[in-house]
């Protein structure tokens, strides 16, 4: 059996929505990061599905780049988070409010 193109996109959309909600609603920096990963992967799924539908490879190529980028982002992000956590011993995003107004 084959999955229709529309369903793949739908899956991507659902996944994206879950990721976005996770990223926006969680206070834990790590969880936010995970939410972002989910969002990116949702985009990857949508792109792959669309690529199959349009019968073109550029969508899938894009997915490769997304994956590479996600890795890089996690590297930079985790470094920052770790550094911050060491400074304040907290991974709660809202503790970082030295500057406001």
């Amino acid at each position: 059996m084959t999955v229709s193109h529309g369903e793949v996109i739908m899956l991507g959309a659902v996944l994206f929505f879950m990721g976005a909600v996770c990223a926006v609603s969680r206070r834990n920096l790590i969880m936010i990061l995970i939410g972002v990963e989910v969002m990116l992967n949702a985009a990857g799924i949508a792109l792959t599905g669309a690529s199959l539908y349009w019968n073109a490879l550029d969508g899938q190529a894009f997915v490769l780049f997304i994956m590479a980028f996600a890795a890089a982002e996690v590297a930079v992000g985790l470094a920052l988070i770790v550094y911050s956590q060491r400074r304040t011993s907290s991974v709660n995003a809202d503790t970082y409010n030295l500057m406001k107004g």
Binding site: R27, Y96, G101
Partner: peptide
């Protein structure tokens, strides 16, 4: 209006959504 800029990331993220 400056109260909007709470300094908390959650507010900012909510802004996006």
């Amino acid at each position: 209006l400056r109260l909007w800029t709470t300094g908390r990331i959650s507010t900012y993220l909510l802004g996006l959504l």
